[in-house]
Write a protein that binds this DNA or RNA. Structure first.
Lengths: 147, 147
DNA sequence: CCTTGACCTGGAGCGCGCTCCAGGTTGTTC
DNA sequence: GAACAACCTGGAGCGCGCTCCAGGTCAAGG
């Protein structure tokens, strides 16, 4: 099946569920789950009831994934989406949410930078270790992994 | 209770479970869970069977938290710990694990940098929005949140 | 007509990482 | 000696974010 558009009208080209999965890398079940949770609304339907995803859906799902991967919960995303449906009056709150999450992501970056430092510190302990281990008899055992 | 050391011998000062929780910020149940999963071994005991955490335990738990917060699973941590107990012969593998996780953390940082870009891009859409929303009649609704 | 395949719905199940709970022991305090 | 606090153990429960499944519809192909 290569059908991407449905009606004869020169409307927007759409994607079948399978195509959507391929484009976004997000599983079918997850797409439906997002929709059921109100994170993805107004998905078009073909005459037979099958979903038809529009270009905007693709972009939006990418945003959803991005926010999810940086720790925003389904609950928070739902809240943000609801605000979007309530019109421009909610703009300030939506802006606030984005700013808050932005700060959270920066916190995460900083946390990870510290993790890198810690890992590098531990790696010094293995600095002289070659690809294949040539060592004497096991000694401390406990202190081993802890450096 | 201020008892931190137990025996009269000038051994190492230790922490009670409550003190450990305060020092590390890790909950009591979680500490016991880590121990039960083999992430924290050879925790000392007082005569009455109560745990006594040593200085090394504090440091190690901080390492555990750092690795956990950057996505290393309990399973992977358990594996790493087991290797530590098997002595120096496992050094190369442990080094490999750290290097792999280091790469993973860098990937996460890059992912979050892209998230910042995306958030900033969406924030441009709210650039003119003041603390309290003053907008006209709701329009697009759908396109609202999606920018 | 029958099969196949893509999709539908509603709901159950799952893996992870804790987190909580019941029931018990020990040690201190009044 | 009664009450209380801090801890013990083994095991159950939970919240999240999916992920899977049963049973059904519809359209195209052989």
């Amino acid at each position: 099946m290569v059908t991407t558009s449905d009606s004869s009208a020169p409307s927007e080209p759409t994607l079948t569920p399978a195509e959507m999965v391929e484009r976004t890398g997000v599983g079918l079940d997850t797409l439906r789950y997002y929709e059921s949770e109100g994170l993805l609304t107004d998905v078009a339907r073909a005459a037979n009831g099958h979903r038809r995803y529009r270009r905007g859906d693709v972009l939006w799902v990418e945003v959803l994934r991005c926010l999810r991967e940086t720790g925003m919960t389904i609950e928070q995303l739902r809240h943000y989406c609801r605000l979007g449906e309530d019109g421009p009056v909610t703009k300030p709150e939506r802006k606030r949410i984005l700013l808050d999450h932005r700060a959270e992501v920066e916190r995460q970056i900083e946390e990870r930078r510290r993790a890198l430092d810690l890992i590098d510190h531990k790696l010094e302990h293995y600095a002289d270790t070659r690809a294949i281990g040539i060592g004497p008899i096991p000694l401390t055992s406990q202190a081993e992994a802890r450096s």
